[in-house]
Design a protein around this nucleic acid. Structure first.
Length: 114
DNA sequence: AACGTGACACAGC
DNA sequence: AGCTGTGCCACGT
């Protein structure tokens, strides 16, 4: 059998993060804190960002921004502009790395995903 | 084994 | 109304 990469139990947290991010509807965005809150680790919003650090393919990490709607993680993409480009492609307006109408397109997993 | 770092968030000034 | 400081948890060196 193929070498299954063993993941420590606490890595389950990362997996949950990826699952939630994958569930983000197109044209919507969420914040690290919202995901952390949904997972019950509101205090560990940083961990969410760390989880995205190893974001596997298929994870729309560009839909995840900080609570201010700022594209803080754009520097971690292939190109600094990749994040903004992807968001604009989904119909999200961005000005100065900041999402416009953030509160309107904000997608809270704890509220809408139930 | 310990210290420093990091894609955040909130309270205080 | 914007900036600074602190808390938080996991990972790398």
């Amino acid at each position: 059998m193929p070498p299954i990469k063993k993941k420590p139990a606490h890595s389950n947290f990362f997996d949950d993060v990826y699952a939630v991010v994958k569930l983000i509807p197109k044209g919507r965005v969420t914040s690290y804190g919202a995901i952390a809150n949904f997972l019950g680790t509101r205090s560990s919003a940083r961990m969410v960002g760390w989880a995205m650090h190893g974001c596997p393919s298929g994870i729309p990490a560009h839909r995840v921004v900080n609570s201010a709607g700022l594209l803080t993680g754009k520097h971690h993409f292939k190109t600094p502009s990749a994040m903004q480009e992807a968001l604009e492609k989904e119909g999200i307006a961005i000005i100065s790395d900041k999402i416009k109408h953030f509160s309107e397109i904000f997608w809270d997993p704890a509220r809408e995903l139930v």
